[in-house]
């Protein structure tokens, strides 16, 4: 909302060979080509230290790229920051507040910093944003008395001061309790339904799976993959899990049928079905039964983003470099 409808670009974020090498020589972001389609809820994943935050800061014009280019809403950044950023709401690396100001005064100040925002509607917009994140009751309280969750909500409210074309949310549910997380996810879905493109970084994979339509995975400054979430998850091969009182025999039969990486723990036998020419799972089950294996359960588990992520990065999600 709030953009000229005539020339809405289909790609909201586009980076080309985006690279940042810090003065110490550390390569934080390495030739990144990121494409975020309009109307998507785009999950930005990666272990800590993978360059997500540096990328977000370059997108927002806070850090100058060493080389490469960035375009937001079809306009080059940071050259046209003054025209682009009023349409972009952002929560970057957690909220930052003036502790000596009330929640309402904090938002009014951020709004005043935007030269395109209308001062006459400021009060009303601030109150609407506070209400939207559930902070209306704490509007006059000094921000230093806010809990972590309330600060996070206030940071979100700052991103919602105006109708935006793009929201860049870095870990938006950080510090929130489960109920607060659900509320924020519902808010994100609501905003997405209004047509706002949402670029969301998170360390919670199920959060990305729940709300995102697209995702990108970064590791050590490089983009490993990007695309619709369904495609990414499908790309990961699931794990076959069989529970049986005859695990030894089950493992033998599965191996004969090409299942590899078999592990047995108690009554649980797991393994990966062959990638090329996979057998019909029903035949596999029938083969087990024919060999006298008493099958309690038979299932494919973990065709999830997490599997995809582990397969791509070769490491657990919470690993920092």
């Amino acid at each position: 909302m709030g953009t000229s409808t005539t020339s809405e670009p289909e790609t909201v974020i586009a980076t080309r060979d985006l690279t940042k090498r810090f003065r110490g020589g550390q390569l934080a972001v390495d030739r990144l080509d990121l494409t975020v389609p309009r109307g998507s809820v785009f999950g930005f994943l990666g272990p800590n230290g993978s360059g997500k935050t540096t990328t977000i800061r370059m997108l927002m014009g806070l850090i100058e790229p060493t080389s490469g280019s960035t375009a937001l809403l079809g306009r080059p950044m940071p050259v046209e920051a003054g025209r682009v950023l009023p349409e972009v709401g952002a929560l970057i690396e957690g909220p930052a507040l003036y502790g000596f100001l009330s929640g309402r005064a904090n938002l009014a100040r951020i709004d005043a910093a935007d030269p395109t925002s209308e001062p006459r509607t400021r009060r009303a917009r601030v109150d609407t944003a506070l209400k939207r994140v559930g902070l209306a009751a704490a509007a006059t309280k000094k921000a230093r008395a806010y809990s972590l969750g309330m600060k996070q909500r206030l940071g979100l409210a700052a991103a919602l001061l105006k109708p935006r074309s793009l929201l860049v949310l870095d870990e938006p549910t950080n510090g929130l309790d489960p109920q607060g997380m659900r509320e924020i996810r519902a808010l994100i879905r609501e905003l997405a339904a209004d047509g706002t493109t949402i670029f969301l970084s998170s360390h919670l994979l199920d959060e990305i799976e729940q709300v995102c339509t697209h995702a990108a995975v970064m590791s050590q400054g490089r983009l490993l993959t990007q695309g619709p979430v369904a495609d990414l998850a499908a790309g990961a091969r699931g794990r076959l899990v069989v529970t049986t009182p005859d695990p030894g025999e089950a493992a033998r039969v599965l191996e004969v049928h090409g299942v590899h990486g078999i592990t047995v723990s108690g009554p649980r036998v797991t393994g990966h079905p062959p990638a090329v020419d996979p057998p019909d799972l029903a035949d596999l089950n029938a083969a087990l039964v024919r060999s006298g294996v008493r099958v309690r359960s038979f299932a494919i588990e973990g065709t999830s983003l997490e599997e995809a992520f582990v397969a791509l990065t070769g490491e657990g999600f919470h690993v920092s470099d």
């Binding site: 800061r57 927002m60 014009g61 806070l62 920051a81 003054g82 950023l85 009023p86 972009v88 952002a90 970057i92 690396e93 957690g94 909220p95 930052a96 507040l97 003036y98 502790g99 951020i110 709004d111 910093a113 935007d114 030269p115 940071g155 700052a158």
Partner: peptide, 18 residues
């Protein structure tokens, strides 16, 4: 120090203006 600088700049306050 408080991190509010980044929020002023993405508002966008403009560096020269700020």
């Amino acid at each position: 120090a408080t991190g509010t600088l980044r929020y002023l700049l993405v508002a966008p306050a403009g560096r020269v203006r700020l």
